[in-house]
Computed example of a mutant assay.
Amino acid sequence: MQRRTLLAATGAAAALCATLGAPLHAQDDPLTVGFIYVGPVGDGGWTYQHDQGRLEVEEHFGDAVETIYQENVPEGADAARAITQMVLAGADLIFTTSFGYMDATAEVAEQFPDVKFEHATGYIRGDNLATYDSRFYEGRAVEGLIAGHLTESNRIGYIGSFPIPEVIQGINSSFLHAQEVNPDVEMVVVWAYTWFDPAKEADAAQALIEQGVDVILQHTDSTAPQAAAEQAGNVYTFGQASDMAAFKPMPRVASIIDDWGPYYIERVQAVMDGTWEPTGTWGGMSDGHVVIGEITDAVPAEVKAEAEEMIDAISSGEYHPFTGPINKQDGSVWLEEGEVATDEQLLGMDFFVEGLTGDIPS
C-alpha cells in the first residue's frame, strides 16, 4: 500500500512544488487523495477523527488509492498555498477539513478545474467543489439533556471556538435540552477563538470551573478541558469529535463522535466510477455521521435511558432538536409551537435562544 505524509513545516511542503508543471498522477497510477488539516493528527479530537477516516480509505481501497495529508495548516492565505502544493503533488481529490478553508478552497478549485475538491462545514460550491458537514447540534441535544440532569450547581459551561452558525447551533441546542429537564440551569459560554490550542482550552475550562460550573461542553479539539476537569474533580465533560475515551468513565461521561470514514469512502468511489458530483451533504445521526459514544456508569441509569430514547427519536426522524416553541434571546418568537427549524434557518443562526446570557461576538 502506498502512503505519503505531507509535513506541517512550510519547507517540507514547499518541496512538493519542485515540479511546477502538470499533476504527477498518470492514468494507471493509484488515485491520489489529499487531506488538509487545521490541527495535528494527534489532537485527540477533530483532526484525529478526520485522519481516522483517511486511514479507513486506505484500508478499504488498498493499492488503488494513495492518501497524502498536511497537518497544522493555518486558516487564511497559508491554506491556499498548502492546497495548491497538494494539487501540484498530484492529488486528484482533496478534502479541506475546516470552516476557515472555505475561501481558499474555492480559489484553488477555480484554478484547477480537473481536480475534485470537498470542503468540510462550508457553503461555497462550484463545478468541481462539493461541501460536507454533520448535524452536530443533534449530539449537543443529547449532551444537554445529560448535563441538565447531572449538574448540582445548575451552572453548565460551554467552550466555544468561533462564533459561526455551526458553533452557535450547538450552544443553543445543548442549553435548550438542559433547560428542558432542569429549568434552573444556567449556561456560561467562554470563547476560545481557536479550534486547537491546548493551553487556551485549559485556561477556558479553568475559568469556567472557577465560576462554579460543574459540567463542561466544548467545541474545541483537544483533550485539555478533559484534563482540567479531571484535575478539578467532580466536573463532568463530554468528548468532542472523537470519543476521548482515555477520560472514561469520569470526567468524560459521553461523547459526540464524527464518523467521516464512510463518507470519504463513498466520495472516493464516486471519483473512481466517474459519478462524482459537487453535492452538498449535511449528515446526522440517521446516516451515521454523528454518533454518541458510550454513556458511562457515572450517568444514572434513568438518565442514560432518557438519553438513549432521544438518540432513537432523532435517528428515526421522530424528533428534531429545534422544534418550537423557541424564542430568541430578546424574547421574540423564532419558532411557533410544533414548528421545526428549516436547514436555511439553522445555517444562518446568529443569535442565542431565550434564557442564555451574554452576547455573541461580532
Rank of each mutant, 00 (worst) to 15 (best):
M1G: 13
V87Q: 02
P198A: 03
D127M: 01
E152C: 01
M1W: 08
A106S: 10
N154I: 04
P300E: 03
V188N: 11
D312F: 05
W260C: 01
F196D: 04
E318M: 07
L145I: 07
Y132K: 05
C17D: 14
E309T: 07
R125V: 13
K200R: 14
V291N: 13
L208C: 07
Y158D: 03
A14C: 07
I124S: 08
W260N: 02
Q206H: 12
A270W: 08
F61I: 04
T281A: 09
F175E: 11
V38T: 13
Q85T: 09
L346C: 10
M244N: 05
A91L: 04
G11I: 13
E306F: 05
N327M: 12
T323D: 10
L346V: 06
T105S: 13
D203V: 06
L55F: 12
K248T: 06
P30V: 00
D51N: 12
I83F: 05
D359E: 15
V38M: 11
F196Q: 03
M86A: 06
P165C: 08
G331T: 11
M349D: 06
H149K: 14
P165D: 03
E180G: 02
D92Q: 07
Y69F: 15
V185S: 08
A245E: 14
P278T: 11
A8G: 02
I164N: 08
A246Y: 01
V268M: 04
G288D: 12
D114C: 02
S362T: 14
I146S: 05
D78R: 09
D28A: 14
V188L: 15
Q211K: 11
P325K: 06
K248H: 15
H50Q: 08
S173W: 09
V108R: 01
E58G: 03
E58D: 15
V213C: 13
L150R: 02
T84P: 00
G324F: 11
V299R: 07
L129P: 00
G338S: 15
N327I: 01
L88I: 06
T275H: 10
G212T: 08
G239E: 02
P278M: 14
E180Y: 09
I216Y: 08
V108G: 01
V215W: 12
P300G: 07
G348H: 13
F351P: 05
S362A: 12
D243Y: 12
D203C: 00
V268P: 05
E308K: 07
D221N: 12
Y101E: 01
E354C: 02
K116S: 09
V57P: 06
V303S: 03
G280Q: 12
H320R: 08
V215T: 10
P183F: 06
W195V: 05
D43L: 09
Q27C: 00
